[in-house]
């Protein structure tokens, strides 16, 4: 009887450990973005503009955005990118102006899904975000005047993923 109980406990333990292992692997995969989509975005040299204003990608739970500030090193032009919730660009730009273009003040704005740091010329940063559904996700540069005055903004069109 004791042997039988021990056997059942061992089998159950193995099952639980295996489950936990699988879950950890899934988490690792999620964090590494292996099951996601990667997007690259940069600036147009020394212009205050993104190199793309419209990007289409299939829906994924994890999207990795890599942003490169291509401005020449001596130009001192800082850039960043913030991905916003669909339909929130006008509200966000008003809030940005009211904040005095202060990154520390604006970083907790509810419209922001993800935002890079202000990057010096030549620098790059990758960030991950997790859209809840397909849609048109605006992206903007938060540096003073870049989006609201000089039009440094675009749209990430996240389409329904095709069935394999």
């Amino acid at each position: 009887m004791l042997n039988k109980t021990l056997k059942i406990v061992s089998i159950l333990s193995l099952f639980i450990l295996n489950k936990q292992g699988l879950s950890k692997d899934k988490d690792k995969e999620r964090l590494a973005g292996k099951s996601g989509v990667t997007v690259s975005l940069s600036t147009k040299g020394n212009d205050i503009a993104f190199d793309q204003t419209s990007i289409q990608i299939p829906f994924a739970e994890n999207i990795t955005l890599t942003f490169v500030n291509q401005a020449l090193k001596g130009s001192e032009i800082l850039h960043n990118v913030a991905v916003l919730k669909p339909g929130s660009v006008d509200t966000f730009l008003k809030a940005l102006q009211l904040s005095g273009y202060d990154l520390d003040k604006i970083k907790n704005d509810p419209s922001i899904l993800v935002m890079t740091e202000a990057l010096a010329p030549g620098a790059s940063q990758s960030v991950q975000f997790h859209p809840s559904e397909p849609g048109f996700y605006p992206f903007v540069c938060v540096m003073p005047g870049h989006a609201d005055m000089l039009g440094m903004k675009g749209t990430l069109n996240i389409t329904k993923a095709s069935k394999k």
Binding site: S75, G100, M143, G145, H146
Partner: peptide, 12 residues
């Protein structure tokens, strides 16, 4: 109005 420089965020 608050005038700023688009290149140097601290200038206003």
């Amino acid at each position: 109005a608050e005038l700023r420089c688009a290149i140097h965020p601290k200038m206003k």
